[in-house]
Simulated assay, not measured.
Amino acid sequence: MALRSGASTRRLRCLPLLWEILFLVILGATRQAGAGRSCVEDFLLTSLQPSTQLRYQEALQILNNDLDATGTVLADLPEEEQDWLLAEWILEGYENSKSRGGYGLALSALSKINPRVRYKVAWKVFDVWGKKAPPAQAPAAPPELITAMIVAALLLQRPELSLVTMLCFAGLLRVREALSLCYKDVVVGINCVTLCLSATKGGLEQKVVLTNTSTVNWVLSYLAKFPGKRNDEARIFVDRLWLCAALG
């Protein structure tokens, strides 16, 4: 009986140890499963253009370096503390006169890989930074310069470059939007020309109406010299690579 009692005592003493080992095994499995979060983050980033992915990764690396210097792991903090920590990080960048763009990229990247967190305070600090120190922008090109460029392109026997320059200036088109135009996208009306844009940066279809007499006449002259069929899927500007190089 004494031996049996001793064995029972040892068994009771071992039970807490067994439970502790079991708890550690479960905890380890949970942490291992949680490691898949980085895979999800990488997958979410694949929806972006490669150049944007690279910029986001560079911005996140800068953030991680700053956090490593303080021994902080952002993912270990509650969401509210993450928000305030990022707000203080952005404020420190403002006070040290650093480039604002990198902080915006870091916030955008974090919002992309963790869409359930809004980072409202951090974004508010970022917006106030923009109001206090607005980015310097290059002045718009004067109409006289654009006119000279259009005429120069014609003298160089590059009518396509001339028209692209005019469309980008008169219609506020991006170069890519102008080069993506097909014959079916150009609708000629009464004293106007409507451009139907399908390849916009935002992914939405847009329409641009040109009413300037000189612009409309030049578009009509170009279409008369280089006609396309109605509902033609062919692009108006065929030599796109040369135009991209010429337009920078």
Rank of each mutant, 00 (worst) to 15 (best):
A2N: 00
L3P: 00
S5E: 01
G6Q: 13
A7E: 05
T9Y: 07
T9L: 09
C14M: 14
L15F: 09
P16T: 12
L17I: 10
E20C: 09
E20F: 06
I21M: 15
L22C: 13
F23R: 15
G34R: 12
G34C: 05
R37P: 02
S38W: 10
C39D: 09
D42C: 05
L45M: 10
P50V: 07
S51G: 07
S51P: 03
L54C: 08
Y56T: 01
E58D: 04
A59K: 02
A59T: 02
A59L: 04
L67Y: 06
D68E: 15
D68V: 10
A69I: 11
V73W: 10
D76R: 04
D76E: 07
L77D: 00
P78Y: 02
Q82N: 00
W84H: 02
A87N: 05
A87T: 12
L91S: 14
Y94M: 08
E95N: 05
N96V: 07
N96H: 14
S97Y: 15
K98E: 15
K98T: 14
R100A: 03
L107Y: 01
S108N: 04
L110I: 02
V117F: 03
R118S: 06
K120V: 13
V121D: 03
K124Y: 10
G130E: 07
G130C: 02
K131F: 11
K131P: 00
K132W: 11
A136H: 10
A138D: 09
A141K: 12
V151Q: 07
A153R: 04
E160G: 04
S162K: 01
L167Q: 02
C168L: 05
L172I: 11
S180W: 06
L181K: 05
C182E: 09
Y183D: 01
D185H: 08
A199F: 15
A199M: 13
G203C: 05
Q206N: 12
Q206C: 13
V209A: 04
T211G: 05
L220C: 10
L220I: 08
L223I: 07
K225D: 07
G228E: 04
K229W: 10
N231H: 11
D232W: 05
R235N: 09
I236M: 07
D239R: 14
W242Q: 13
L243P: 07
C244H: 15
A246N: 15
L247C: 12
